[in-house]
Design a binder for these strands. Structure first.
Lengths: 103, 103
DNA sequence: TTCAATAGTTCGCTATTATTGAACTATTGG
DNA sequence: CCAATAGTTCAATAATAGCGAACTATTGAA
């Protein structure tokens, strides 16, 4: 099976976070994850069902590698959750401010 | 001479702002511009003199087209200023929060 | 006025990154 | 065991970034 790459909290950078969120699809994915306050599968968190799954998979990889989400395998699905506490700890108020304007 | 492309305030999007700031060089340029609270020429605002000027020119174009800076020609130099009020009006608190963590 | 210096842009090429269909893997229900 | 489901990986193409070289506009000096 595949191993997910999650950076440690120390390796999360501001530029990587902004870059990851600087795409409308990924911004919406993170907004969905935060507003639902739950773990969502990739397809559940997707903003639109017409996005090819290989494209979606790539977007989730970028969000993971930026440290924005944590992915765990739960049966056949992948559960995704925003690493809110890690990011809040490193960049207080950042995520809340961004998501406020993304809605 | 060249005409600069500046989007109207209404055309500034959150994703474009985040994407433009999601690059370490551009993030530093904007930080420099805000902290100096002045119009700076491209080379003055550059984070490092070793960056080729064609690369720098491209970074400034991206910042302009995202609506983050306004460029005016002043003699042989270009004066760049952050469009703070426009962005603050559209996304209150966003720029301040980002720059706070970029320093 | 002519020339050289300065500040940036534009061009053209290369390198990196994104998109997506197709094939593949892992898990589960029947 | 088989089919269905969720997602990854692969391979090919498209779009974007980086940068040297050539170009443009402005200005100061001879």
């Amino acid at each position: 099976m595949s191993k997910f790459v999650h950076p440690s909290k120390d390796d999360i950078t501001l530029a990587n976070i902004l870059s990851a969120l600087g795409d409308p699809i990924r911004l919406k994915i993170v907004t969905n994850l935060i507003q639902d306050k739950a773990c969502l599968s990739c397809s559940e968190a997707s903003p639109c069902p017409s996005i090819p799954k290989s494209t979606l998979s790539n977007h989730f990889r970028i969000l993971r590698e930026a440290g924005l989400i944590r992915t765990t395998k739960q049966g056949v699905e992948h559960q995704n959750a925003v690493r809110y506490d890690d990011i809040e700890d490193k960049f207080p108020g950042l995520l809340k401010t961004i998501i406020k304007h993304a809605g």
